[in-house]
Computed example of a mutant assay.
Amino acid sequence: MAGVQDQLEIKFRLTDGSDIGPKTFPAATSVATLKESILAQWPKEKENGPKTVKDVKLISAGKILENSRTLGDCRSPLCDIPGGVTTMHVVVQHQASEKEKKAANEPKQNKCSCVIL
């Protein structure tokens, strides 16, 4: 019996309303491993998919899940029904490149000029 309770069936809801899964994971699975699974199963026809684990945010029961936590740590007694499927929402946030970060931090130049006649 404990083996069944140590497994969670999860489907990942993408922003367009489509799903990846459901798939069964042990409660000891890390959030980072879930994200790697999402990367591997990401539909090829979808544009702007995540490139790395850092591009993926997982939300369950209204909370953003941290990579170092396990499914067991993130389990919500109010939302997780034994034998049911847990839905986690997937948000893709591409990380800014170093060039983009530098450009965002540079002071803006004033581009207006005055002409005195």
Rank of each mutant, 00 (worst) to 15 (best):
E9P: 04
K102L: 01
D55Y: 12
S60D: 02
I64Q: 03
K44N: 15
G17S: 12
K46Q: 08
Q41E: 15
L65V: 02
K44T: 15
K54S: 08
D55H: 10
L39T: 00
V91P: 00
G72T: 09
P26V: 11
V85E: 06
N110P: 05
P82N: 15
A2P: 03
L78W: 15
M88A: 14
P22Y: 01
A40N: 15
L58Y: 13
D6Q: 15
P22R: 13
M88H: 13
K111N: 10
K57G: 05
K11A: 05
N105E: 01
G49R: 05
R75W: 00
E9Q: 14
A61D: 13
I59E: 09
W42F: 14
L34I: 05
S37F: 14
P77K: 03
V31L: 08
V31D: 03
K44W: 04
A103W: 02
V115R: 02
N67M: 08
E100W: 14
S30C: 13
E36W: 00
L34K: 04
G3E: 15
P50R: 07
L58D: 01
K99D: 08
Q93H: 09
M1E: 11
A32N: 13
Q5S: 09
K44V: 11
C74M: 09
S60Q: 09
I59D: 01
N110L: 04
E36T: 12
Q109A: 05
E45H: 14
S68Y: 12
K23L: 07
I64K: 00
Q95P: 00
D73N: 08
P22S: 11
L78P: 07
D19Q: 06
N48Q: 11
A28L: 13
A40E: 15
C112I: 04
D55W: 13
M88D: 01
Q7N: 10
V4I: 10
I20E: 07
T15G: 07
F12N: 00
K102A: 08
H89D: 15
P26G: 15
E45Y: 03
V92Y: 07
D80W: 14
S68D: 12
V53S: 06
P77E: 05
A96D: 08
G84W: 02
C112W: 11
G21P: 07
K57P: 01
S76Y: 05
S76W: 09
E100K: 10
H94S: 05
T87W: 01
V85K: 04
D6P: 05
Q5T: 07
D16V: 04
I38D: 00
K35R: 12
A96R: 12
P77N: 03
I81H: 01
S113W: 08
K111G: 05
E66A: 08
H94C: 13
L39E: 14
M88N: 13
T15I: 10
K51Q: 10
R75P: 01
E106T: 12
D73V: 00
N48M: 04
W42R: 06
P82F: 09
L58Q: 11
C74E: 06
V4L: 09
L78I: 05
I81Y: 12
S97P: 14
L65T: 03
T29P: 09
L65G: 00
M1P: 15
G17K: 01
I59R: 07
W42D: 02
T33N: 01
A32W: 00
